[in-house]
Structure formats: structure tokens, C-alpha cells
Nucleic acid binder design. Structure first.
Lengths: 194, 194
DNA sequence: GAAAAAAATTAACCTATGGTAATTAAAATG
DNA sequence: CATTTTAATTACCATAGGTTAATTTTTTTC
């Protein structure tokens, strides 16, 4: 179990056994059932969460009551609301599990201890955040430049694993369209392929 | 001049005079005229750029030849294409100056030297990127949940300085709408205010 | 494995925003 | 300061995607 976490943490930095012990002592392992919430709107995000197994969805609910998927989470991904976590203010996000999910979590105080005792972890998390930032910019660029059809096709090629494990109406929400529109897009795409 | 850079670099960390010297030796100062390009599509982004004075716009051109503004840059902001910079691959972005602009730039090798000689700069850049990432996520959320009118009003309250210094059609592009649509939105907003 | 719940599809109609074009206003330049 | 260039506005029609609603399919649950 811890292996999955340590393997990922050593992706951009090398760790000694003592450092692995420190890490082990600072993370908490938790299990969630499908449909359980890892984080709910109004709470302060006390943890950053690393997914060992499972699928999650992070979404916000707007004033009209509509849900908007900001992010999916899969094995080896970090999820959470970084803003709430860092500023210790209530989150607007919800995270629930689309499958039974196992995670490692770290609190802000423990993350600070981690940075202090294993300074090279700053490097790891800088790179993790860099990559998340780059992905987010790509998403902005794609929402500015592309039609819903193009965005859907990009999504299916970029995240085939997600497409298989997540209901279409969640993908539609991620793409910023309704389930009905996605259905229409899919049926048109199938027609063209024939 | 260097003050502006050092002030910002010390926002999240404290620096000794020796460390300030190291920084001074690793950055390059450059001046650009309005309309000059700091970065053009196809180049490798050799620098991350800190704006001392001026306004920039980062944009991509899509297959249909349309420009889409990804980011504006103002005093004390970092701009650049992090992906191209880190991976040393050709950028799809262009950065040009909307006013005469002065910047400090750092190359990737020099940034690595900086991290090595002044390790706490990892912290600074992790936080800079964190903040940029958080802003990008907010933009995604807003593009999913909000109408163009709402996004425009949010923009004017969040970035009043940009609204003053940047032509409306660039703001329209940033918001993902045409200049004509923004014009319509503005005239409707004015009507309601009366 | 039957019943209930959740997800996907289809269709008819509606609306926000895009595209094109023409007009006016403002800013840059020699 | 006259001319050219750039920016903003307005109007009219086109269209992608939203809304509502009904129907079918799939998945979950007891």
C-alpha cells in the first residue's frame, strides 16, 4: 500500500530508508466506499490526498444548483482543494468516490514537517504542482479555442482510462456541456466513423 | 530596477546579501517596446520572465487563425510558457507587449543553479506556481459555471488594473468571447445600471 | 432476478453567442 | 493636425449547445 505512495514520491527525488520512515509516519491511510465523500463544501480541506486505488470526482455546485466537475482522480494522482488547504478557508469543492477508493492523506502541519525534515520533497511537490498547473492551462486553452466535439475527442484520447470508468454525464460536466449534448456529439461521431 | 525583483523574490523567503548577489548574477534585464514579442510560437521558451514594468499578453493562435489570450502580465508577475521552458520543446504561445515593458529573465540552467545555491528559492517558486495553479483552476471553474456576462463582471472586479490598460477585444479573447459579444454585454450592463 | 434507481438517448424548441459587415470613435504616426 | 490604423459599436442572421420532457437502457439493490 505504502509502496504506491513512496514510488510516486520518489518519481522526481531519491529517498533514503530513514526518509521513507519519516514519510510513513506523516501520512494517514484511509478507505472510502463508492459514493462516499472525501471532502464537502464548507469544510476546510485538512488534507492533500494521494489515490492508491479508485476513482474520484471533484466538483462544485453553482448558485443554480448545477454540479461542475473540476477534476477526476485516478491511481497515483493527487487530489484536493489546494486553496482551502493552504489558506485554511472553507472549500467550495466536493470530492466523492466513483468507485471504492483507498488513499493516503497528509495534513498541512505534517506537510510542513515533511518539507523541513526532507527538504527535497519541496522539489517533488513543486513539480507535481507544476504539472497540474500545466494541465490546467491546457484545459483553459482548449475551452477557449475548441468546440465541445473537439474537446470530447481530445478527452477520450488523453484520458482513455477515465472514459472507461466514469459515467458520460460526469464527463459532459467536466467538458462544460450537458449530458444531452454529449450524447448528441457521440452519436454524430459514430455516424461519421461509419 | 533589481529591487522590484528582489522584493518579490523575498515575498515568501528571506535572503542574505550574498544570496541577493547570486540572484543578481543569474538574471538578465531586458527592455521591450510596445508590440515587440518576448516569445513567439515555435521557439523554445529559454526564459521565465518577471515583469518590472509594463503589460504583456500571452496568446495562442488556433488552426482557424484565431488568437486566444491565455494570460495577461503586469508589474511583479511571472510570465512565460512553463511547459516549453521545462521540457525544452517548442512553444505554442506568443507573448507580446501591450505597453513598453521591462523584465528580468532567467534561463533554465541558471534557475537550476539558483535552486542549488539558494535552496529556499524552491519554496518561492513552489508558492508562485501554486498561486498560478489556483488562479487557473478558478478560471476553469468560472468557464464551466458562468455566463459570459458573469465572467466579464468578475474580471473587472478581480483585475481592475488590467481592464484599464488593455483593449476590450483582448479582454474578450481572454474571456472566450468575440469583441462584438463583449460590446453587447457591456452595453446591456450599462443599461441595467441606469 | 424483480424492482428501483441511475444513466443514456432522442427529439422539439429556445437562447446565448458567433459570423459577417458596415459605421463610428479613438489612438498612433509622420 | 491630417492621415492611417486600430478599436469599439451596432445590427442582422446562423448555429452550437441548452432546456424540457419522454423513452430506453443499464446498473444497483434487496
Amino acid at each position: 500500500m505504502l509502496d504506491a505512495l513512496v514510488n510516486t514520491l520518489t518519481k522526481y527525488v531519491t529517498l533514503s530508508p530513514e526518509e521513507v520512515d519519516i514519510i510513513e509516519s506523516l501520512f494517514i491511510f484511509r478507505s472510502f466506499r463508492k459514493r462516499q465523500y472525501i471532502l464537502q463544501e464548507g469544510e476546510i480541506a485538512r488534507f492533500e490526498t494521494f489515490i492508491v486505488k479508485g476513482v474520484t470526482r471533484t466538483f462544485e455546485v453553482d448558485e443554480k444548483g448545477q454540479e461542475h466537475v473540476l477534476q477526476f482522480g485516478l491511481e497515483d494522482w493527487w487530489i484536493g482543494d489546494l486553496y482551502s488547504f493552504l489558506t485554511e478557508t472553507p472549500t467550495k469543492s466536493n470530492i466523492d468516490c466513483l468507485e471504492d477508493t483507498q488513499v493516503y492523506q497528509i495534513t498541512k502541519p505534517n506537510l510542513e514537517i515533511l518539507y523541513e525534515r526532507v527538504p527535497k520533497m519541496e522539489r517533488h511537490f513543486r513539480i507535481v504542482i507544476q504539472n497540474a498547473y500545466i494541465a490546467s492551462i491546457k484545459r483553459v486553452a482548449s475551452s477557449l479555442a475548441k468546440t465541445a466535439t473537439e474537446r470530447y475527442l481530445d478527452f477520450t484520447t488523453q484520458y482513455p482510462q477515465i472514459e472507461q470508468r466514469v459515467p458520460n454525464h460526469q464527463i459532459a460536466s467536466y467538458l462544460g456541456i450537458t449530458a444531452q449534448s454529449l450524447s448528441r456529439i457521440r452519436s454524430q461521431a459514430h455516424k461519421k466513423q461509419q
